[in-house]
Amino acid sequence: MIHLEDVWRTYRMGDEELHALREVTEEIRDGEHVAIMGPSGSGKSTLLNIIGCLDRPTRGRYRLDGREVASLDPDELAEVRLHRIGFIFQSFHLVPRLSALDNVELPLIFAGMPPAERRKRGEEALDAVGLMPWAGHRPSELSGGQKQRVAIARATIMGPGLLLADEPTGNLDSRSGHQVLEMLSQLNANGKTLLVVTHDPSVARRADRVVVLRDGQIVRRVEGRSVSDLATLFAEDVPAP
């Protein structure tokens, strides 16, 4: 369960204050599939980073599963990221010198799992995204879609309840993008909470609901299946409900 209450994220640029997020109040229940949309610079990534415990609100409260995130120390935050949250990035973020399997196993290393068990779990996870034949390949030898599937295997290997994807299909062609989205939907269907930042209406349509940001504020909430085109979605004259 994600609880955001009057969350602000303010950057200080010299004398200027820049509000990347302002007055964000939102509740996301377990198992929900939510898309976050908005023009470039509207604060989508900032919001996702705060939810993912990579960043902290300047003001306001954020509770994850009932725990006040502001009260956690760096080690506890790392623990939350390790066990509760899986990240998927637009640019994949695989470690280039490690094989696909070694990349998938990284979180298990941080969890202190012994090598034999790690290998077994890593292979299962890689198999689940259909990439076992590529286990020994370096990221540079994989296609974009394959890289993102490795990243999904890595994000899910610790069995987190929450998946955060920042434009997961932004660097993919439509076919492999579709494959990745299918995988994410499947994970959501199996009970994981899924938050996807996207510019793509067809991605947003898969979500239960869509949150639209503009200038750091939530300006609109709509159902996923009602999303048609960006122009109507981002239109300024409609007040936030």
């Binding site: 993912g52 990579l54 760096p74 080690d75 790392a78 623990e79 939350v80 990221r81 390790l82 066990h83 990240f87 973020h93 470690v95 990284l106 979180p107 941080f110 969890a111 890595r154 610790m158």
Partner: peptide
């Protein structure tokens, strides 16, 4: 740097 960011996102502690 971005690798360090990734490791942190994956749950590595400062000590690690």
């Amino acid at each position: 740097t971005s690798e360090v960011g990734l490791l942190k996102a994956l749950g590595a502690t400062r000590r690690q």
